[in-house]
Simulated assay, not measured.
Amino acid sequence: MLSQLELEARYADAASAATAHFVYAGHVNEAIERCDLAQEGDIVADAIGGAGLCVPNLRELASKARDAGGRLIVDGTVPSHFGCRPLELGAAVALEALDRVAAGRLSRKVVAIASRAPLSFDGVDAVGSDVIDAADLAAIDEGLRTFPDRMQCHVDHARALAEYLACFEGGSRACPTPVLLRIPTTRWPRGFLCMGLGLPSILSCLPAGASRRGEFIECCRLNGRTEPAGGYATRLHARDGAKGYAVRVFAGLDDPLVIAADLDQVLRSCAVL
């Protein structure tokens, strides 16, 4: 197995970065705050995120940050470094939670911080790596070896689920639009996605019927809620909490036809409520 320094260098190479650090953090924003990454004039953005899975123009944001004397810092977790390389689009720093890289096998969430140049403020190195547990390093090591093939499979399964949801016809006159699907596929800024990908491995939908998304997810037998994030199973997530109205679908490596059949059963029952 490679050492932590070797793994960080390997990740940096995959992310088109000059350097990379691994830190333990509950989420990317925590890593940004803990490492004091965001300074005056900096812009922090999601590569894909927000209520409608928004896709910002990273090149424009990078230019805006430079004009303000700052840098662009990007959370690239959703498309991953396989699907999008923010550093090539003008970002100075790109972060990624490594759940999917490690196939859901991490004991604690690890965030990779990659940058185009060594991270320093006033000439002082501001970011150092945490000492990552050996088991987590082993999961990242194995995960990096298999990640391109696995990520392509995640994306292909998301496409299959998107095609099903877009064609769902389980509505009634009282519920003419049972599913409002949000897939940011047609307005990508030029050159945003790598590897010829057409969409990321995440979908967002607003299924009608059940009054709260927590209820909808509980009705889905294969909701993946007991499975690790980034692992084999497709996982449904209530974006705004159990009382919200949007469901996000993180496509896994399991059979998308089986997942679609489970979703179909619940959507049809919701459509007649």
Rank of each mutant, 00 (worst) to 15 (best):
Q4E: 11
L5V: 12
E6V: 01
L7E: 12
R10T: 10
Y11N: 12
A14V: 06
A17C: 05
A18I: 00
T19L: 03
T19M: 05
A20H: 08
F22D: 00
Y24N: 07
G26H: 03
G26C: 12
H27L: 02
A31W: 01
A31M: 04
I32R: 09
I32V: 10
D42P: 06
I43G: 00
V44S: 03
A45K: 10
A47S: 14
G50Y: 06
L53K: 05
C54S: 15
L58D: 10
L58K: 08
R59L: 07
L61Y: 02
S63P: 00
S63T: 09
K64G: 01
A65Y: 11
R66W: 08
D67L: 09
V78G: 01
S80M: 11
G83M: 08
G83F: 08
C84H: 05
P86H: 08
L87S: 00
G90Q: 04
A91T: 02
A91I: 02
V93P: 15
L98C: 15
R105T: 11
R105H: 07
S107E: 04
S107G: 04
K109P: 10
V111L: 13
V111Q: 13
V111S: 13
A112F: 08
I113F: 14
A114N: 07
A117Q: 13
S120Q: 15
F121L: 02
V127F: 04
D136W: 06
A139C: 02
I140W: 03
D141K: 09
E142Q: 14
R145D: 12
M151E: 15
Q152F: 04
C153S: 08
V155M: 03
D156W: 02
A160I: 15
Y164V: 09
A166R: 03
E169W: 03
E169Y: 01
G171E: 14
S172V: 08
A174G: 11
C175W: 14
C175P: 10
C175R: 13
T177I: 15
R182E: 06
R182N: 04
P184S: 15
T186A: 14
P189M: 13
R190H: 13
R190L: 14
G191F: 00
G191W: 08
L197K: 01
L197Q: 05
L199E: 11
P200L: 00
I202S: 02
C205N: 04
L206N: 11
G209V: 03
A210D: 12
S211F: 14
R212M: 03
R213N: 02
R213P: 01
L222Q: 08
N223T: 04
T226Y: 07
P228N: 11
A229S: 14
A229D: 13
A229I: 11
G231R: 03
G231N: 08
Y232N: 12
A238D: 11
D240P: 01
D240R: 12
Y245N: 14
Y245A: 15
V247A: 01
R248L: 11
G252Y: 06
D254K: 15
D254S: 14
P256Q: 01
D262A: 10
D264L: 08
D264G: 12
L267A: 11
L267H: 06
C270M: 11
C270R: 07
L273D: 12
L273S: 06
